[in-house]
């Protein structure tokens, strides 16, 4: 479970649950889950704080998408400038530089991201979202196996940007298709994400990255402390007093 402490500007720490997907079913062994087993911990390559993201050479903007991209101001449009503990969103969480753990269950696959304490519990062969289902940071996801490739389809997002800190817009109507697979003889996980967002782009396109197999790693608990807005002056003495109270 992720914990979140808001130290600033409130004088009292607030504990809130950011994500708490609970899995009732038991994990299954790799050999028993689908055609291949992806359960395990994955991480960015060593020496890399931010993993390389394979982006399209050219984003096929619609006029509206181009306008939003041009108007993007990281200080205004990146919520983490104002709030260190702003929730991570899809698909931005896919490109972050901390470990991720996959656990396969018979009826679902659970992806637990260290950064932001994000947990996605995705049913296998689940039901698409009802049209009146609320949109959310992570959207509504369902998964299926295509041979040895795990495919996750996601819709009902809040929208925002495709990559944190970068201004490639994503609308609430966007649909994401993640494909995870291994190259023959390798344990690293290849990820390709197809972005289908007719509001901002004239045609679908893909981004990708590699998750490096890291069995020696673990996904650590994420307790978030907001150090205060980066856009306005903060009372550092008050922040110091509050940090001093943390063990």
């Amino acid at each position: 479970m992720d914990k979140r402490f808001r130290l600033f500007p409130a004088s009292v720490a607030v504990l809130a649950v950011v994500s708490c997907a609970q899995d009732q079913s038991q994990p299954v062994s790799n050999s028993a889950a689908g055609a291949v087993g992806f359960s395990g911990v994955y991480a960015p390559a060593p020496f890399v704080a931010r993993p390389e993201v394979f982006e399209p050479q050219r984003y096929p903007f619609t006029d509206a998408g181009r306008e939003k991209h041009a108007a993007f101001d990281v200080l205004v449009d990146n919520p983490r400038i104002q709030d260190d503990c702003a929730r991570e969103t899809m698909p931005g969480v896919l490109w972050l530089g901390a470990p991720m753990e996959i656990t396969q269950h018979e009826d679902r696959v659970v992806l637990r991201f260290e950064r932001g304490g994000v947990t996605r519990s995705v049913p296998i062969d689940g039901t698409p979202a009802a049209s009146d289902e609320p949109h959310s940071e992570l959207g509504h996801s369902i998964a299926h196996w295509d041979g040895e490739t795990l495919t996750i389809e996601t819709a009902h997002l809040l929208g925002g940007t495709i990559i944190n800190n970068q201004g490639y817009p994503l609308s609430r109507d966007a649909r994401l298709t993640e494909r995870y697979w291994r190259e023959p003889g390798e344990l690293d996980l290849q990820l390709e994400v197809r972005i289908d967002d007719p509001v901002n782009y004239t045609e679908p396109f893909t981004l990708g990255r590699v998750w490096v197999w890291a069995p020696e790693e673990q996904v650590r608990e994420w307790e978030c402390v907001d150090l205060g807005s980066r856009e306005t002056e903060i009372d550092i003495d008050e922040l110091a007093r509050q940090l001093e109270q943390l063990e």
Partner: peptide, 23 residues
């Protein structure tokens, strides 16, 4: 050391004796 950023606060004193905290 906290998430998402560890914090070091340093008191810096100038020639006049005034102290400014740095984050």
């Amino acid at each position: 050391i906290v998430n998402p950023h560890g914090a070091l606060i340093v008191n810096v004193t100038d020639e006049s004796g005034a102290t400014t905290p740095w984050l």
